[in-house]
Amino acid sequence: MPASASASPRRPLQRLRFVLLPLFSLACVDSPSSADDEASASTTSADAGTNTDESSSSETANTSESAETSAETESSGSAETETDSGSSESDSGSTETETETETETETETGEPEPYVCDNPTPIMQWQTEVPSGWVTCADGFEHRVEAIECVDPQEQSNAGCANFGVASCHTVEDCTEHAYGACVFAPLVNCECTYGCQSDADCEPGTICACAGVAGSSPQCIPSNCESSSDCGDGLCGLSSFAGLCSNIYQAGCADPYADCHVDDDCDGPPCEPPGGECSLGTTPGNAWDCNVPSDCNGEC
């Protein structure tokens, strides 16, 4: 019995030994693998760190290159913009210079501005409030806008002519060559016949009727190449008064809008020195409006 009792406790230990020994062996075998795994994990981690560093470096490099490229692009764009701006300003300045040059050239070489009758005022028939068909412009130029019949077509005869022994006429009965005759005083010849008019129909071809108050205080037919300003295109049918020693010489004619003159103020220099200080058609019907020396400067009637 004692022998059996002492032997019985060993059997459980031996069984435990047999159970633990294989487990210990397995543990010893698995341990290198774990170490390898840890080494492998460490290597992988290191590689990952390296890759991360390389990736970070690469990204940094790419970012730097991108920044440099962007900077170059912006610099280039800015430079091009400044260049374009400078070019645009240059072109603008060139255009303004060309425009100014063209304007100056047109001003220096272009024709003068066409004449315009400002503030036309009707000319009334002598001692009446009836329009004559003529108007006076603000600068004094007179032109015919329409033909109107005269209120008083005949001048009054001078009773004193009856007492002149030698004269062209003595009474109105001596003046019958045309309608509306009158015997009036005249320089150098004492008395002479004059003939008035009521309308253009009373005048010879190439003449028109100027009512009293237009060409002096009596109605008369005057030479003219127009009946009204509507016959003159862009011009005006103007009244010309040419000073003579005995009387003024009246006639009408188209005044071109670019005529050398329209009124005496357009003429430079003294009246009696060429080209003269009187704007008129001169003494010849159909002449152009020009500055002339009045005939009374030469003692002519």
Score class of each variant (00 low, 15 high):
Thr81Asn: 10
Thr103Met: 04
Ile123Arg: 01
Cys117Ser: 07
Glu104Asp: 12
Thr95Ala: 15
Glu89Gln: 13
Ala71Lys: 10
Ser78Ile: 07
Val130Asp: 05
Glu113His: 08
Gly110Trp: 01
Glu129Tyr: 12
Glu74Ala: 15
Asp91Gln: 14
Trp126Phe: 11
Ser92Ala: 15
Ser90Asn: 13
Glu72Asp: 15
Glu74Ile: 11
Ser90Tyr: 10
Asp91Thr: 12
Ser94Met: 05
Ser78Met: 09
Thr101Leu: 07
Met124Tyr: 06
Glu111Met: 11
Met124Ile: 07
Pro114Leu: 02
Thr99Glu: 07
Ser87His: 13
Thr73Tyr: 11
Gly93Leu: 04
Gly110Thr: 00
Asp91Lys: 14
Thr101Phe: 05
Glu96Ala: 14
Gln125Phe: 00
Thr83Ala: 13
Val130Cys: 06
Ala71Gly: 10
Asp118Ile: 11
Thr107Gly: 04
Ala79Thr: 15
Glu89Leu: 15
Gly77Ala: 14
Pro131Asp: 04
Glu72Leu: 14
Gly133Pro: 01
Asp91Ser: 14
Glu111Val: 11
Ser76Arg: 12
Ser78Asn: 13
Ser75Asn: 14
Thr121Asp: 10
Glu104Ile: 07
Thr101Pro: 03
Ser132Val: 02
Glu98Asn: 07
Val130Glu: 03
Glu98Arg: 07
Ser85Asn: 12
Ser85Tyr: 10
Glu102Gly: 05
Glu89Cys: 09
Ser75Leu: 13
Thr107Ser: 08
Glu111Ala: 15
Glu108His: 08
Thr101Ile: 09
Ile123Phe: 03
Ser88Val: 11
Thr99Ile: 09
Glu104Lys: 07
Glu102Pro: 05
Pro120Met: 00
Trp134Tyr: 06
Glu104Gln: 09
Pro122Asn: 12
Val116Pro: 04
Gly93Lys: 04
Gln127Leu: 14
Gln127Asp: 14
Thr107Ala: 10
Thr121Ile: 07
Glu96Gly: 10
Thr109His: 01
Glu129Val: 10
Cys117Pro: 01
Ser75Ala: 14
